[in-house]
Amino acid sequence: MPAVRKYRRETSEISCCLKYLLFTSNVIIWLTALVVLSVGIWAWTEKDMFRNISKLTFIALDPAFVLIILGTITFMLGLMGSVGALRENTCLLSAYAIFLSVLLLSEIGFCGLAFVLKDKGWIKDQATEGLRAFIKHYREDPDQQNLIDWIQEDWLQCCGIDGPKDWDSNNYFNCSSIAIGSREACGVPFSCCRRRPQEVIKNKQCGYDVRKEGYFTPQGMELSKIIYEKGCVQAGEEWIENNLIIISTVAIGVMFFQILGICFAQNLRADIYTQKSKWH
């Protein structure tokens, strides 16, 4: 009888658990980025930004542009990670790890810079300039308008930079605009108004005339009961102080998962090289 040969299947050096964990997580990132990118492109299309380049003056403050940039970067990252893991492509995995490392170092640098400059007013100055641009161009871009309305009404419950008077820098709300017939002159946007008890639909005209001299005298009402008098810069500082632990936890969590992604990619690359060395 011929001798029976026993064949032993060669074990792979590549961890399937590591490979598909990296692939699945990056597919989720890739799909999320695709949604964000699509929303940004749709918003630009609605504003006809692709044909009207002259509107790009304040592009850095355009929420749709920010979504496009974030979506593009995250899309590339997720694509490199998922395809690199699935196809066991060491070049893509290397690019993925480098990309994540650059992002991680940038985040650490930004956090360090923010900590160093927090007492020098640099961050406050940047926030002030950004809000000033939002207020000045409030009616020119619907996305910027919606963003500052969300900041004032839903997030910080504030009005203006240091207070309601800052809305004088907008042509529609400036008190001198009464002469040209602006109904919003000497007023503030509806997002500055406090919500009334049991109010379901907010009155969009609640901020009309509230900054007119003597407006509340005949009505016997106080400004603070109608609109927010606290500026958004002060409200933002207070919000950060009250939520510092949560912010720090989220930042550390994001960095932890980035480090985990770098380690997974590097370990998978090492496994692939080890497997290839067997073939040679």
Rank of each mutant, 00 (worst) to 15 (best):
P2Q: 13
R5K: 13
T11F: 01
C17K: 12
L21W: 12
F23C: 01
V27P: 08
V35D: 13
L37C: 09
W44N: 09
M49D: 15
S54V: 07
A64Q: 11
A64F: 02
I68H: 07
M76A: 10
L77H: 04
L79Y: 12
S82E: 07
G84C: 11
T90H: 05
L93T: 10
S94V: 08
A95V: 13
F99A: 04
S101G: 12
E107W: 04
I108E: 13
F110K: 10
L117W: 00
A133K: 15
E140P: 00
N146I: 08
L147Y: 15
E153L: 01
W155G: 03
W167R: 01
N174M: 04
I178E: 15
A179W: 11
S182V: 10
G187W: 10
P189L: 02
F190I: 11
C192G: 02
C193A: 06
Q198K: 11
Y208S: 01
D209C: 02
D209A: 00
R211L: 08
M221D: 09
E222Q: 09
E229D: 14
E238S: 05
W239V: 05
L244T: 13
I246V: 15
G253K: 08
F257S: 05
L260I: 09
C263S: 05
C263H: 03
L268N: 10
I272D: 06
H280Q: 04
